[in-house]
Design a protein around this nucleic acid. Structure first.
Length: 392
DNA sequence: CGCCTTTGACCGGCGC
DNA sequence: GCGCCGGTCAAAGGCG
């Protein structure tokens, strides 16, 4: 009997092994499941019935039957053996279940590993893009990208800095459209603040768009009408400009998609006035920098009439204090990964007679939503040229 | 109590 | 000179 039992066990074990080995597909798993379900039913039913009845199953009434004493002993052993086999089967079933679980987890592990590899690949790609953006933001390192800056009369820069900047720039707007270039004689006859800034990328389409904007700008000096024309002509790229009347302070206008009342640029501002400007029913709010007493920097915030989601923020003046930690932290943490894929620094007029004067345009509304923490990054990148901007 | 926003009044530049 | 308009002032009130 022992031999029979061991044979039975071996037979079942080999059957289980053959089922388990090399079975990784789901169909095989199902087959294994089915086999073991049937197996469990067969083997456990006998054992459970035995347990429930409290007596061996199909045990013949042996009392008073001397003739069948040996047979009774044999039947008893057989029943016990069957019970043992049932128990062993249960163990094997549990074992095979564990093995199946292991196989499943192994496959899941494979999938997860692929996910991790893919994520790592994406991460590396983003890092590369980040590096490219950083390089593009630094004109000194990448001669292929032309960041044009012109500063005149900026109290925030000394003469050497200005010369250094002008060495690397070209005055795009005036020359490109045949306007009399005032660069040659500005120093003598024009002491107004002129500030021109463009970012030329490899995209010729953007250059074309910018040329169109410049044409519009030339033809219509009125700020609001220019703005409207530009938006009608180029709905996807929104521009703006700043107008300074008689003061000589640096001034920049930033247009950005922003849901909040003001852009979070890291500085502390106090509202000191609000007006309904002509041509735009949206009120224009006036803010003063309160980081340090007497700081002359002010900003105007106004919603764009055509697109209420766009916030036009105009900064003016130079901070007389180191920027707060908040601005510094944001400038350093809001990395270029938060930048829109393409942001454009658009031009301002540079000494155009009778035109909108002395402003710079920073449009961050191109094709996407503006994270209101982007500004410090962009501004910090150009803080050397524009010290009134929040920076590191 | 200090800081902020609101809001009407005021001021100065500019065009007619 | 007058009116318009953008920008600023300052009192009042709210809020933490």
């Amino acid at each position: 009997m022992e031999i029979d039992l061991s044979l039975k066990i071996d037979a079942r074990e080999s059957k289980d092994r053959s089922l388990m080995q090399g079975n990784s597909s789901q169909e095989d798993h199902k087959a294994v499941d089915l086999q073991h379900k049937e197996h469990r039913q067969d083997t456990t039913m006998a054992a459970t019935r035995e347990a429930e009845d409290g007596a061996p199953l199909e045990l013949p009434t042996l009392q008073g039957n001397d003739k069948t004493k040996d047979q009774v002993g044999n039947a008893d052993v057989e029943i016990r053996t069957r019970a043992l086999v049932a128990i062993i089967d249960v163990y094997f079933f549990q074992l095979s279940m564990l093995q199946m679980e292991m196989i499943r987890m192994r496959e899941e592990n494979k999938v997860l590993r692929k996910e991790v590899e893919k994520t790592l690949q994406d991460y590396n790609d983003l890092r590369m893009e980040f590096a490219v953006v950083i390089q593009q933001n630094n004109p000194m390192k990448d001669p292929g990208i032309s960041l044009s800056v012109s500063l005149k009369g900026n109290e925030g820069l000394n003469q050497e800095q200005q010369r250094g900047n002008e060495r690397n720039l070209n005055i795009v707007n005036n020359r490109r459209h045949g306007l009399p270039s005032q660069d040659d004689n500005d120093d003598e006859e024009n002491h107004e603040l002129g500030l021109s800034l463009t970012l030329k990328t490899s995209s010729s389409q953007r250059e074309i768009r910018q040329e169109d904007r410049n044409k519009v700008f030339q033809e219509t000096p009125d700020a609001e009408s220019v703005q409207h024309k530009l938006q009608q002509t180029h709905s996807s790229v929104i521009t703006s400009h700043a107008v300074s009347t008689s003061n000589r302070k640096a001034r920049v206008s930033v247009r950005a998609r922003c849901q909040t009342a003001t852009m979070n640029d890291g500085c502390q501002w106090r509202k000191y006035g609000q007006k309904i400007a002509k041509g735009n029913p949206c009120p224009r709010a006036y803010y003063r920098c309160t980081v340090a007493p007497g700081c002359p920097v002010r900003k105007q915030v106004q919603r764009c009439f055509d697109d209420m989601s766009i916030l036009i923020t105009t900064y003016e003046g130079t901070h007389n204090h180191p920027l707060p930690v908040g601005a510094t932290a944001m400038a350093s943490t809001a990395s270029s990964s938060a930048l829109p894929s393409t942001f454009m620094l658009l031009y301002s007029s540079h000494g155009v007679p009778n035109g909108p004067s002395k402003g710079m345009v920073l449009s961050l509304t191109n094709n996407g939503h503006f994270d209101n923490q982007i500004l410090p990054t962009v501004l910090s990148a150009h803080h050397q040229a524009f010290p009134w901007m929040p920076s590191r």
